[in-house]
């Protein structure tokens, strides 16, 4: 067990307002050094709230209800905020979807990277700026001395995301949480950034939690995948195993509803869509959360909630069909 960089145990994150929105409902996962764990899910699956919970960034009225987030054995869920601030950006870093909104528009990008090591490593101003230029070179930005003096709006979307990656890696963190890091990018730029992330990870041995709605992105970067639905992990498997033999009807439906790029479309031109929509997280049905959209639903699904059960080596699913 000592090999895990991160272990999440029974994590619950709720938003308490007029109703209780159960965004994350009991998640268990773990990541080893150098590994990428992909988290796949659609809007409302709880994947981004889970990422925010790991960074302890869930906004009020939301909060971690219960559970543990063990980073190197230390439970982040219970740390005082002051101690958490020393960990964020240092031992655990985050890369967001839209670099334009997560970079400060009025500070030069070199200074933004430098700030990280001045804060966490106590570098001098000069040292920190040299380091920032070195990081820009590492993420393959041409002419890093000049780019370091530029503001975020002077960079292209792809370059801004490279800056975010440089910032994330600045303190050589144990874990990077990347929330839809390439979703806002064009497909040729996405390919560049995904390659950069894989290369940098191989070089540094950082563990990565990669959150995405795109099954293709997961297939090309992750070693293991957790599929989320309505605040829970419904399937958990090695990436090849998951694509070869998905067990949960939601995973199967999700894969089938993606239009195929490498095959002619079906004669009927109809996609096997999943009917209906995700249930509201403040009024979940009794039993399985996927019951109303599931083609295989039977009596038991409507009365009792399935558990995430291990079916074969490293492959678990939350479904009564496979009980």
């Amino acid at each position: 067990m000592g090999e895990w960089i991160l272990q999440v145990k029974n994590l619950h994150t709720y938003f308490r307002g007029a109703t209780v929105v159960k965004a994350v409902r009991g998640i268990d996962l773990e990541i080893a050094a150098g590994e990428t764990l992909g988290i796949v899910g659609e809007s409302g699956s709880g994947k981004s709230v889970m990422a925010q919970a790991m960074m302890r960034l869930v906004q009020s009225p939301g909060g971690i209800e219960k559970g543990e987030i063990l980073l190197d054995g230390e439970d982040l869920a219970k740390l005082p905020e002051a101690r958490m601030r020393a960990i964020r950006g240092n031992k655990i870093a985050m890369i967001f979807q839209e670099p334009m909104t997560s970079l400060n528009p009025v500070i030069r990008v070199g200074d933004q990277i430098a700030e990280v090591v001045r804060l966490h490593r106590g570098y001098s101003k000069r040292q920190a700026l040299d380091f920032a230029i070195e990081m820009l070179r590492k993420v393959r930005i041409a002419d890093p001395e000049r780019r370091a003096r530029e503001y975020p709006h002077e960079l292209s979307g792809g370059m801004r995301q490279r800056v975010m990656i440089a910032m994330g890696l600045a303190c050589n963190p144990k874990l990077i949480v990347a929330d839809e890091p390439t979703t806002a990018l064009d497909v040729t730029i996405q390919a560049q950034i995904l390659k950069l992330m894989v290369d940098m990870q191989a070089e540094t041995g950082t563990a990565m939690l990669l959150i995405t709605h795109d099954l293709g992105v997961v297939a090309e970067t992750a070693q293991r995948v957790a599929v989320m639905y309505a605040g829970q992990v419904v399937e958990y498997a090695g990436v090849e195993e998951l694509f070869a033999d998905p067990l949960h009807p939601y995973t199967q439906g999700l894969m089938a509803s993606v239009p195929q790029i490498d095959q002619p479309r079906p004669e009927s031109r109809m996609l096997p869509a999943i009917p209906g929509a995700v249930p509201s997280l403040d009024a979940l049905p009794v039993g399985c959360a996927f019951q109303d959209r599931c083609p295989h639903v039977f009596d038991k699904c409507r009365v009792s909630e399935p558990l995430l059960k291990l079916h074969r080596d490293g492959h678990s699913a939350r479904c009564w069909l496979h009980d």
Partner: peptide, 23 residues
């Protein structure tokens, strides 16, 4: 050709060529 190769996918037989630079 490069655009089609750039799309991430679950089934890929060969190493893709990645288009460099920005538009």
């Amino acid at each position: 050709e490069a655009l089609l190769q750039a799309v991430p996918r679950a089934t890929r037989q060969s190493e893709r060529q990645i288009l460099g630079g920005d538009v």
